[in-house]
């Protein structure tokens, strides 16, 4: 088996006095789709945010695509990564946020082309052609010139997905992408993800409260509690025959079984 594309080794993370991870280990294989479920405050989002370099770590190592994420080699040892290293590493990753975080002063098209143009130096015409393709993919080709505030929540999130894809990440992080949406808008966003994984292979890490979706799309489901993976496995197994009491309690509360 090839080396995992993401690997957490003895990772420690605190927010002040609060310990989120004390000794966290976790692996994701290339092209694997992993759903992370669990109660709020269990560190699910923190895991994604650490990978996206929005939060740093207080100990341990993380490897992404064969290189250390938060450290870099320097004179024979590993030292904390500098901006240049983090900049390089971020090219592997893309993230879609719970609250979209679209740029409200930019058109939908510009939201999508901004990073490719600025970061990768893609010429405008090429970036816009790709943006149009992405908008087609998420079913919003007629909204290219709209501003985010003129869109519904579901449409905003579809733009959020297109914006992340514009940077062609090999790993996609989805952080509760439907949690801020009205229930009737959830499916239009999930459908985009469904189509996406049908057409291309992605390594995808998603934190979600949509249990049916997690069950349907994932190769593996991890149940998180208090900064640790309590139970993980194939979705069918986790959802139908959970072994751990905490998993059972959580799923019962969630699915109302």
């Amino acid at each position: 088996m090839s080396a995992p594309i993401i690997e957490f080794k003895n990772v420690k993370k605190c927010f002040g006095e609060t310990i989120i991870f004390s000794d966290f280990n976790f692996k994701v294989e290339e092209n694997e789709i992993v759903s992370i479920i669990g109660p709020s405050g269990s560190g699910k989002s923190t895991l994604l945010r650490i990978l996206m370099t929005l939060e740093n770590i207080d100990g341990g190592y993380i490897n992404v695509a064969g290189e250390s994420l938060w450290h870099m080699p320097w004179q024979g040892q590993y030292v904390p990564a500098n901006n240049k290293h983090l900049h390089k590493m971020r090219n592997h990753l893309g993230m879609v946020f719970q609250h979209f975080n679209l740029f409200p002063h930019m058109t939908v098209k510009r939201n999508i082309t901004e990073a490719p143009m600025r970061v990768k130096g893609v010429p405008r015409a090429e970036a816009e052609a790709f943006a149009e393709k992405l908008l087609q993919l998420v079913g919003l080709e007629d909204k290219a010139d709209s501003y985010p505030n003129d869109l519904s929540g579901g449409q905003k999130q579809r733009v959020g997905i297109a914006r992340a894809l514009a940077m062609k990440p090999s790993i996609l992080l989805l952080d509760e992408i439907t949690s801020a949406l009205d229930p009737e808008l959830v499916d239009e966003v999930l459908d985009v993800i469904r189509n996406l994984v049908k057409e291309e292979s992605f390594t995808m890490l998603l934190v979600t409260h949509e249990m049916y979706f997690a069950r349907e799309i994932s190769d593996r489901v991890c149940f998180f509690d208090k900064g640790a993976i309590v139970e993980e496995g194939e979705p069918e197994v986790i959802f139908t025959q959970p072994k751990e009491e905490r998993t059972k309690a959580f799923l019962n509360a969630y699915l109302g079984q």
């Binding site: 090219n91 901004e114 992340a164």
Partner: peptide, 10 residues
């Protein structure tokens, strides 16, 4: 800021 960083903007 987070979206900008996730998109790798300087």
């Amino acid at each position: 800021w987070e979206a900008a960083r996730a998109l790798n903007l300087s």
